[in-house]
Simulated scan of single mutants.
Amino acid sequence: MHNILQSRIPKGTPITATPTPFRAHLLEVMGVMDIPCLAIGRQTPSIGIWRRFCQPTGPRHGIEPVTGIPRSLLDLLAGIGLDTTEQSFWDWPGEAGNFLQCYLWEAYRLAGILSIRQWERLHKPFSDSPQNLSTWRQPNSCPADSSTLVSRVLASVDALRMGCLERPNEDPFIKNSILFPLVVAGLEADIMCKNPQWQQTIRRSSLGSRQDHILLGILEEVWHRGDSTLDINALARGKDIEMGLL
């Protein structure tokens, strides 16, 4: 799809040229699917569609309709491992939305911070000594440890679940986006093993689909091993699984 789109762009047309509304929507759909943290077990590297095409040319306000996530928050998720920092998520101002949306967005914001920490555990070429930590991550400056973040992510997801039961017609598709924060929180194996009730929260929040069943199976294996340094992408590829978290 990306190659076809590229072939339709006239040679010499700058990337910053404003796309038509339909093309902008198509780019966003592909861009979301291409954001690395929103998929597990990828067989090929990310193309970088969101950062290369969506951020330079699309609107930076409002909500992306497929995910129900604000574009400004997707900008941060697309920058994990590049230039997004934990402080970026703490500073995210949010968007105006209904209560169900606010629960979801808060879960994503905090899960984004956990994603950065998980990425650093797997990819940092050297250990974090005090001089290597960014200023805000220095001891006594970090506003929340990972256990607190996990509890807040799951609290937001559980509030969303109960809100959907109470108001099923308010936003019937919003729960389709809860897989990312659930999986990210679930990957904190040492924390989950100390809090088995949180494992039950994740089980209770699943949508009951085959995709959920597969993801829960992977998380159950992570919890059984009790190793927070496991690479879920390698684990998924070993099972021949490649799946988006939507």
Rank of each mutant, 00 (worst) to 15 (best):
V32K: 00
A189T: 11
P125R: 15
I49D: 00
L27H: 12
C193A: 15
L235Q: 10
H123C: 12
A155Y: 10
V150T: 04
L26C: 14
T57N: 08
G48N: 07
C164Q: 09
D171S: 14
E221G: 04
S88V: 02
A189F: 06
S129M: 12
K194Y: 05
G238F: 00
C54N: 11
H61Q: 15
D171G: 05
S209P: 12
L73K: 03
Q87A: 11
C37H: 01
T18V: 13
R225E: 10
Q200E: 08
R60N: 14
E221W: 05
G238S: 04
P70S: 04
T85W: 04
S141W: 13
T57W: 01
I80Q: 00
G68D: 01
R161I: 09
L82T: 14
S129D: 08
P125V: 14
D171W: 05
M243F: 04
L182E: 01
W223C: 02
P59K: 07
P139M: 06
D145H: 11
H2Y: 15
A17L: 09
P125W: 08
T201A: 07
L76F: 00
A155S: 15
V66L: 09
L179S: 13
N132H: 12
T85D: 06
E106G: 06
V66H: 07
L165W: 13
P70W: 01
I113W: 01
F89C: 07
R117N: 11
I116G: 06
G94N: 06
R167W: 03
G48H: 03
D83E: 15
P65A: 05
L246K: 07
G226F: 07
L245I: 03
M243S: 07
I69N: 00
G97D: 00
P196A: 08
T67C: 00
S129I: 11
S115G: 04
Q197C: 06
V150Y: 00
I218F: 09
S228F: 09
L5E: 02
I47S: 02
S147M: 08
G244E: 05
I80A: 01
P59I: 11
I218N: 03
L245V: 02
Q211C: 13
W223N: 02
I9C: 04
L230N: 06
L100G: 07
N169R: 13
I69W: 00
L182I: 09
L122M: 09
R60C: 08
M162V: 04
L219Q: 07
L82E: 14
N169W: 13
I63T: 14
L215R: 11
V66E: 11
L5H: 13
G238K: 04
S46C: 10
G163L: 03
R161M: 13
H123F: 14
L76Y: 02
Q118W: 05
L230G: 02
N169E: 13
T84G: 04
G68E: 04
K11Y: 03
D240N: 15
D240R: 12
H224R: 14
N3S: 11
I80T: 02
S151V: 01
P172H: 09
R161V: 14
R204D: 15
K239W: 05
S129N: 05
T13C: 12
V32T: 02
L110D: 06
I241T: 06
G94D: 01
A78V: 04
I174R: 10
G97S: 09
R60V: 10
A144M: 15
P93A: 12
P14T: 03
L216S: 08
Q101M: 11
M243P: 04
R60W: 12
I4H: 06
